[in-house]
């Protein structure tokens, strides 16, 4: 009898341990199952605000298309326009030399040390091939104008630069907005323009280079622009 009791006790004990383990497994299953729902729920759904890069005519605040003469050469407060989505400013620059004479900007290969890739920069457009655009959101930690600014060429030893006063990143607009000094690890994304010589107007068509700062891809993470045919400029 005593032997029996002991055995029953032993098996009771192991049964209890087993049941406890099962209980823990059940709670674990519940935790994992509900965690999936909670986590997936708090991640906001992310869909592209627009399906592809829109082609937009750059217009002034009055809605009139911008002509070449509207864009000043080496303007230290260049036009800004939103592209491809709202709240994504881009510089519209007309680059020149130190005497404010238009300089043709050629397409070059730009290295992106941040991810080891390289891309072919957007060439200058317009009658002198001197009009160029880029994202105006610093690739280091996302500062926007007026913290990131265009400094026109002031001497032969200082060709124009784009400099961000937040943490000191500098970009060279003459060579595809490549990195001059860190701490940024990426060049500025280039905004592709096209020029219609018959009407002397500029269109923006797409982006090349790294993804715009703070975005997972260029077409998501924001609201589409109000117009599907134009984007308005403002002065920085």
């Amino acid at each position: 009898m005593a032997q029996d009791n002991k055995e029953t006790e032993e098996s009771d004990k192991s049964r209890r341990t087993f049941l406890k383990a099962m209980g823990i497994v059940g709670i674990g299953v519940l935790a994992i199952g509900s965690l999936r729902g909670v986590i997936q729920n708090i991640i906001p759904p992310l869909s592209n605000a627009v399906s592809s890069f829109p082609t937009l005519t750059i217009v002034s605040t009055s809605g009139k298309p911008i002509n070449t003469t509207d864009i000043q050469v080496n303007n230290p407060t260049p036009f800004l326009f939103d592209y491809p989505l709202q709240n994504e400013p881009n510089f519209l620059l007309r680059l020149g030399d130190i005497n404010n004479k238009d300089m043709a900007i050629k397409s070059v290969k730009v290295n992106d040390p941040g991810d080891g890739n390289s891309f072919v920069s957007a060439p200058g457009v317009g009658p002198y091939n001197s009009v160029i655009a880029s994202s105006a959101i610093c690739q280091h930690l996302g500062c926007v104008p007026p913290k990131i600014e265009f400094y026109p060429p002031s001497s032969s030893s200082f060709p124009g630069k784009i400099h961000c006063s937040c943490h000191g990143s500098t970009y060279d607009p003459y060579t595809g907005f490549s990195i001059v000094t860190g701490p940024t690890q990426h060049p500025l994304p280039n905004t592709q323009l096209s020029y219609d010589s018959s009407s002397d107007t500029y269109k923006v068509m797409g982006m090349v280079g790294p993804t715009i700062y703070g975005h997972i891809n260029d077409l998501s993470g924001g609201s589409a622009l109000p117009s599907t045919s134009t984007t308005q400029v403002s002065s920085s």
Binding site: L46, Q86, G142, H215, S220, S223
Partner: peptide, 27 residues
């Protein structure tokens, strides 16, 4: 912007962290 940059640079789950804490990108 800095917080977003740090969240996004987290290995593997960076993108999700950024979305969870800073939303889908609109203001």
């Amino acid at each position: 912007d800095v917080g977003r940059g740090i969240a996004q640079a987290t290995p593997v789950i960076g993108t999700y962290l950024m979305l969870i804490f800073f939303g889908s990108g609109t203001s």
